Amino acid sequence: MGTGLTLEQTPLQRITLPNNLTIRNISEIYSTVGEAFTSSFSLCLDIPAGAQIDLSFVQMIEALRRQARDDHKDLTLAGPVQDNLATILRQAGLWDGLEADDKKFWLHEGVAQ
């Protein structure tokens, strides 16, 4: 079963995620992203516009952020969150409590574009 994940081999490894970022395939996505992280110092996730997203995706991202922090690696998003992901962050109660590093990660606040 293909999920639509594509990997680019560059100094900064970029992963283009599939359109379905839900509980149905989050385990496979996590495995692929985790595998890429073991061989890369810096990983950038590209979330397609209009992707289907649920809370399992946010949980996966937060787990990867903690792993990156613990392993002294860099995890970024290709761009600031779109409305669909912002809605999930709000529903999860994470939006209002975003700290500076969270705003940098999710919203790209303070990031040179």
Rank of each mutant, 00 (worst) to 15 (best):
G50A: 00
D96E: 10
T32E: 12
G2A: 08
N20P: 04
D54C: 04
L7M: 09
L94V: 05
R65Q: 00
R65Y: 02
R90W: 12
P18I: 08
F37W: 06
S27I: 08
G79Q: 14
I23Q: 13
E99D: 15
V111K: 11
R65E: 02
N20C: 13
T38W: 07
R14C: 12
G4I: 04
T10K: 11
N25H: 13
T32Y: 03
L85R: 08
A51G: 12
Q67H: 07
S39R: 13
T38K: 15
L85C: 06
A68S: 05
G110S: 11
L17C: 10
V58G: 05
T32P: 02
L45R: 01
R24I: 05
Q82H: 15
N19L: 11
K73Y: 03
G97V: 07
L12W: 08
N20D: 15
N84F: 14
T6A: 11
S39W: 10
K73W: 04
W95K: 08
D101C: 03
R65L: 07
H108A: 11
L85F: 03
D70E: 13
Q9M: 13
G110T: 01
Y30D: 09
A112D: 07
N25M: 10
I53P: 10
T32W: 02
S42D: 12
K103Y: 04
R69F: 03
S42W: 14
V111R: 11
